[in-house]
Simulated scan of single mutants.
Amino acid sequence: MKRLRNPRTGVDQGDIEVFSDFEDNGEMWTGSGPRERRRSVDFSAVFASPPSVHVSVSLWDMDTSAAIRAELVAENV
């Protein structure tokens, strides 16, 4: 965690792979099976209060023959 001038203020960052089904022809890649993935994330240090969390896509590989939908949500922070 990077601490700012005020030692009670910090920024933690990381990249979590939720799935990578194209390598093994997995469910998300073939269009069958569960359409939801959830991951638990542990911060590197404890925050004094629940932090503000920003989530975004770091890689998006898709087929153009289907509708493109995604919802990225931080829950239970």
Results as ranks from 00 to 15, higher is better:
Arg69Cys: 00
Phe47Gly: 02
Ala74Leu: 01
Glu23Lys: 13
Ala67Met: 05
Gly26Asn: 05
Ser56Gln: 14
Ser44Glu: 06
Asp24Arg: 09
Leu4Tyr: 12
Pro50Arg: 13
Asn6Thr: 08
Glu75Ile: 01
Ser58Leu: 09
Gln13Gly: 01
Gly33Asp: 03
Ser20Val: 08
Ser65His: 14
Asp21Val: 02
Glu71Arg: 14
Val11Arg: 13
Pro7Trp: 01
Ala74Tyr: 02
Glu17Ile: 13
Asn25Gln: 07
Arg8Gly: 01
Arg39Gln: 15
Ala66Ile: 12
Phe43Ala: 08
Arg3Val: 01
Asp12Asn: 05
Ala74Phe: 00
Pro50Glu: 13
Trp29Leu: 01
Asp21Phe: 04
Thr30Asp: 00
Arg35Asp: 07
Ala48Ile: 10
Arg39Pro: 00
Val57Ala: 11
Gly31Asn: 05
Ala70Leu: 09
Phe19His: 14
Gly33Cys: 03
Arg5Gln: 07
Gln13Lys: 12
Pro7Glu: 04
Gly26Ile: 06
Phe19Glu: 08
Leu4Thr: 12
Thr9Ile: 12
Leu72Val: 11
Ala45Asn: 05
Glu17Cys: 05
Gly33Met: 05
Val73Met: 04
Glu75Pro: 00
Arg38Cys: 08
Leu59Phe: 00
Ala67Thr: 10
Asp24Asn: 09
Val46Trp: 02
Val18Phe: 14
Glu36Trp: 07
Ser49Gln: 08
Asn76Arg: 08
Ser52Cys: 06
Phe43Asp: 02
Gly26Gln: 10
Ser32Met: 03
Val53Asn: 07
Gly31Arg: 07
Ala74Glu: 05
Trp60Leu: 10
Phe19Trp: 14
Val11Gln: 04
Ala45Val: 04
Ile16Asp: 09
Val77Thr: 14
Asp21His: 13
Gly33Ala: 07
Val18Leu: 15
Asp21Ile: 05
Pro7Cys: 00
Leu4Pro: 00
Asp42His: 11
Gln13Thr: 10
Ala74Asp: 03
Glu75Gly: 01
Asp61Tyr: 09
Phe43Thr: 10
Glu23Arg: 14
Glu71Gly: 01
Ala45Thr: 08
Ser40Glu: 13
Pro7Val: 02
Pro51Thr: 12
Val41Asp: 07
Thr9Ala: 06
Ala70Glu: 03
Met1Asp: 06
Ala74Val: 06
Glu36Pro: 00
Ser56Arg: 15
Phe22Gln: 13
Trp60Cys: 07
Arg5Val: 00
Asn76Glu: 13
His54Ala: 14
Phe19Val: 04
